[in-house]
């Protein structure tokens, strides 16, 4: 019915355009609005905008939301939050000042190229966040209960273990579920070097991993996957970590270089914060604030269930934490 309206000739518009009358009216209106807009501007013009980075996982959203709200409500800054992957482009953004700070960097994921940004000072390490993270292999607890030998990696060497975790695509082998390709993962090397009858399949994104986990756990089926703590999912789905061979220096060197020699567990990550080298000059008080900013593993575990399980707004969860811990954060604000 409406499709043929296109054929009609909107003469009124062109006449108005030709006479230029309505364009004058429109310009007048725009000017008036602009004048009004400038009159109504906020008082904080002098303070620069601060851009904080979130990476695509909930804990990162929460840390940043806490910092954002304190910066906005207590320090009068306006904060923009940008969600990007933890990759070299993020470091480039920090280095050129497009981004001001990132509050959660997992040192095990820092590549050689990214380290260069710390080395030349264009990105500054501003201390530990206060959270100890651990990436590793996880299975639902019922798997370990039913197959006690699967509590450690040695149990995964048998063909039966592979068959237990197999799916249509992997045939006799077991499936190891990898995740978002921007997360640092060495599972293909670990599996090859430890000679395990498993094959890595990547979910491609974290939402897909969670959806698959939900599907398997709700059906009480086996699943072996890449995951990490602290996360709410570990308690929601009752996941347990499967220890791999202990971390060695040689293996750590392979992890840093990203070569195929990795045959050990992921290291414990003392999570750090980083800021743009330009932030100290741009907004010294923000730099000091972020430097002092600390969120502990307990703080994260306090906030995560609200955001991940109860589905509350990240902003609301962060606001709750802020109002409950004034004693903690008031020391960061000077």
């Amino acid at each position: 019915m409406v499709a043929d309206d296109w054929d009609q000739f909107p003469e009124g518009v062109y006449e108005a355009m030709r006479t230029g009358r309505s364009s004058r009216i429109i310009i007048g209106v725009l000017v008036a609005l602009a004048v009004l807009a400038s009159g109504c501007g906020d008082a904080d013009e002098a303070k620069p905008n601060i851009t904080l980075v979130t990476n695509p996982w909930t804990a990162s959203f929460l840390n940043v939301a806490v910092a954002e709200q304190i910066l906005e409500n207590e320090m009068g800054y306006s904060v923009e939050v940008i969600n990007i992957d933890e990759n070299e482009a993020m470091f480039t953004g920090l280095a050129d000042g497009t981004l001001d700070a990132v509050l959660e960097i997992w040192p095990s994921g820092i590549t050689v190229g990214e380290q260069a940004f710390f080395d030349d000072g264009s990105v500054v390490n501003i201390g530990e966040l206060g959270v100890i993270g651990k990436i590793g292999w996880f299975v639902p607890r019922y798997i370990v209960d039913e197959h006690p030998e699967l509590a450690t990696w040695e149990g995964y060497r048998s063909a039966e273990a592979g068959a237990l975790f197999s799916i249509a695509e992997t045939g006799d082998k077991g499936r190891f579920l990898g995740t978002d390709p921007s997360y640092s993962q060495f599972d293909e090397y670990i599996i090859a070097n430890l000679n395990l009858p498993f094959e890595v399949m990547y979910s491609g994104s974290e939402p897909a991993t969670v959806a698959e986990l939900d599907a398997r756990v709700s059906a009480h089926e086996p699943i072996l996957m890449y995951w990490w703590t602290p996360t709410a999912a570990v308690s929601v789905f009752d996941l347990v970590n499967v220890p791999l061979p202990p971390y060695t220096e040689k293996c750590g060197a392979s992890q840093a270089a990203g070569d195929d020699g990795v045959d050990c567990d992921y290291p414990e990550d003392v999570i750090i914060k980083a800021a743009s080298g330009k932030l100290r000059e741009k907004a010294p008080d923000v730099f000091e604030f972020l430097n002092a900013f600390t969120i502990t593993t307990d703080d994260q575990l306090e906030m995560l269930p609200g955001a991940e399980i109860d589905g509350e707004d990240v902003a609301d969860v962060a606001a709750k934490w802020i109002s409950a811990h004034k004693d903690v954060w008031s020391a960061w604000v000077k």
Binding site: L177, S203, A208, D214
Partner: peptide, 12 residues
Amino acid sequence: IIPAVTLFTVGV
């Protein structure tokens, strides 16, 4: 597509 993953599992 994400709910589809829950129903059909990760894959093609």
